[in-house]
Design a protein around this nucleic acid. Sequence first.
DNA 1: TTGCTCCTCACGTCACGTGAGGTGGC
DNA 2: TTGCTCCTCACGTCACGTGAGGTGGC
Lengths: 133, 133
Amino acid sequence: MSDLLDIAEVARRSGLSIGTLHTWERHGVIAPAARSGLRRQYEPEVLTTIALAVVGQRSGFTLAEIAELLRAGLRSDTFRVALAARLEQLRQRRAELDAAIVGLEHALTCEEPDPLCCPTFVAQLADVLPRRE
Amino acid sequence: MSDLLDIAEVARRSGLSIGTLHTWERHGVIAPAARSGLRRQYEPEVLTTIALAVVGQRSGFTLAEIAELLRAGLRSDTFRVALAARLEQLRQRRAELDAAIVGLEHALTCEEPDPLCCPTFVAQLADVLPRRE
DNA sequence: TTGCTCCTCACGTCACGTGAGGTGGC
DNA sequence: TTGCTCCTCACGTCACGTGAGGTGGC
């Protein structure tokens, strides 16, 4: 009984704000085990759920999707199929991010007065837009 | 005169939707050179601006910030300071993304029936939450 | 009893997407 | 004249953040 956590403790240990915990609850990602008056009381396991949800968010899932995947279970086919599809998007996003990082690094050191005269810069911009058909 | 592009052509070449171009205009990121009746007519250079803005978005700037940076100019101190600050965030985000990718890859291949018994998985979750003090 | 934390509810933000109903170029 | 694209405007979505005003545990 007394091993339940109040929301302040969950916020502290998870690094999330209380408002964010409320939002995640509205979307069915987490739930308090009980209330003390109006105050939410959580089982310690909620921190595992939160960690899973954070990974899910970083992977680009919405809160609604995360709630659904948590209900489906980590070993379900639903879960596996969703992960496989997402993985490809993450690799794409990582490629974009790498390009953005390289671009910013170059922008900070490039001496060319007009950036649009810098071949490195121009080449990077060209990569951003779709290929001309 | 006749080298102006209509919005459909800009959308096609940039890969953005017309609605997104409208949104970017409301935030001051782009602007049509003229109108033909109500219809926006763009100079071809708008595609360079758009490419810059896409890089800015991938770097995590808001549209308002992008508009401001474009006004400040690519060689201004304002721009350099903003880039340097953002670079650190991007590296952080890339580290998170790498971790998420490794996590998903492992999740797809791990044979452990209960994921919470898989040491790799548990170690990854532990990294998500802040260090215990 | 006094603070303090927590509560709910409403509204704002960000970058769009999605109609609805209308204009106008070709 | 007929379509078709484009226009504006309003509203929805996503995951929050931020008060406002109130409850209640310690």
